[in-house]
């Protein structure tokens, strides 16, 4: 029997729990050359800012063990082009749009949220907090719970009531669970965990940073246990708050691991670069795993790792 794959994230129901992660799926157009994007639970679009942005110079990425370190610098067309061209296209292909927003201060985030109503086809706003805080000596909003909360409060205040706001948190904040609590208190309807961790690679010949941006973000399967740990601890502390789990999801089994740790949905990120069909493959693998275990509804495995031995679903 086919398990019921539907999942809920705050008020939003997704057809299945497999999403494409922001910054790793473009605006859906690139992946649509490989599969029907309407099959995914949702697509989180690349973080959009108010104005066009050229980003950082190349080199922007370097391969690291089971992952990569990258520093793109939020290159993008700005909200106007996104609303005129990218979002309508994604909707026309039946994609569910989670729109990731990035700003240099709470005002920019709020202005973006105001321009992203449900009527434009926005299913959810995801607040990318791993952006340099222009008023905070370049530290990311995600580093300081009070700063993250200021941004989330501004977005929640500006966004339409029916549009859930999720805060996307980095795993290398001093205490990600504290940060999660601060965001929820500020009005976040849910959490996306985790964004990449700061790291770098040094060019072995020049002995200079391999990326033009110096320090970048580490992503890919290398960070998965860290991400699973963050989801697990957050679920423990905030059991009612829906979480989208992400960080190196490569297989259906990885997706199941995040669900068991407490995520209601999972997003596939860097692995899309390695395997453009990854999202639909992971969805199929997850469905097969749930079938094998005799699980009726995907929701039944969410948080399974928190239940006592013997309460494990299926098998």
């Amino acid at each position: 029997m086919n398990p019921d794959m539907r999942t809920r994230l705050a008020g939003l129901e997704l057809a299945n729990p497999v999403m494409a992660a922001a910054g790793c799926a473009g605006t859906g157009r690139e992946l649509a050359r490989f599969f029907d994007i309407a099959r995914l639970g949702a697509i989180a679009t690349k973080s959009v800012m108010l104005e066009p942005r050229a980003g950082r110079p190349a080199p922007r990425m370097a391969e690291t063990p089971s992952g990569m370190v990258s520093s793109v610098g939020l290159q993008g067309p700005g909200i106007e082009v996104f609303l005129q061209r990218d979002l309508p296209w994604l909707r026309s292909r039946g994609g569910t749009a989670v729109v990731s927003v990035a700003g240099s201060g709470p005002e920019e985030y709020a202005e973006l949220a105001r321009r992203l109503p449900a009527s434009a086809g926005v299913a959810m706003i995801e607040v990318n907090l791993s952006c340099p805080n222009s008023a905070g000596q370049g530290r990311d909003f995600a580093d300081v719970p009070a700063e993250a909360a200021r941004v989330v409060r501004a977005v929640r205040g500006a966004a339409e009531d029916g549009v859930p706001v999720f805060a996307k948190l980095a795993a290398d904040a001093p205490d990600p669970v504290d940060l999660a609590g601060a965001c929820v208190e500020a009005g976040a309807d849910g959490l996306s965990m985790v964004n990449c961790l700061r790291g770098m690679a040094v060019d072995p010949v020049t002995l200079r940073p391999a990326l033009a941006g110096g320090v970048g973000g580490v992503s890919g399967p290398a960070i998965r246990p860290i991400a699973v740990g963050c989801v697990y601890r957050t679920r423990e502390a905030l059991p009612e708050v829906p979480v989208i789990g992400m960080g190196g999801v490569q297989t259906g089994a990885d997706a199941l691991e995040f669900l068991a740790a407490g995520a209601s949905a999972v997003a596939v990120g860097t692995v899309n670069f390695a395997d453009p069909s990854a999202c639909v493959r992971i969805l199929r693998e997850l469905q097969e795993l749930l079938e094998e275990r005799g699980v009726d509804r995907v929701g039944d495995v969410v948080g399974a790792a928190h239940r006592p031995t013997g309460a494990v679903v299926g098998r």
Binding site: G26, G55, A58, M61, P276
Partner: peptide, 16 residues
């Protein structure tokens, strides 16, 4: 010839 991570337009690494 530019270094690429994905080759499919997703990663924005190979910009010129």
């Amino acid at each position: 010839e530019e270094a690429m991570a994905c080759g499919t337009g997703l990663c924005m690494s190979c910009v010129v």
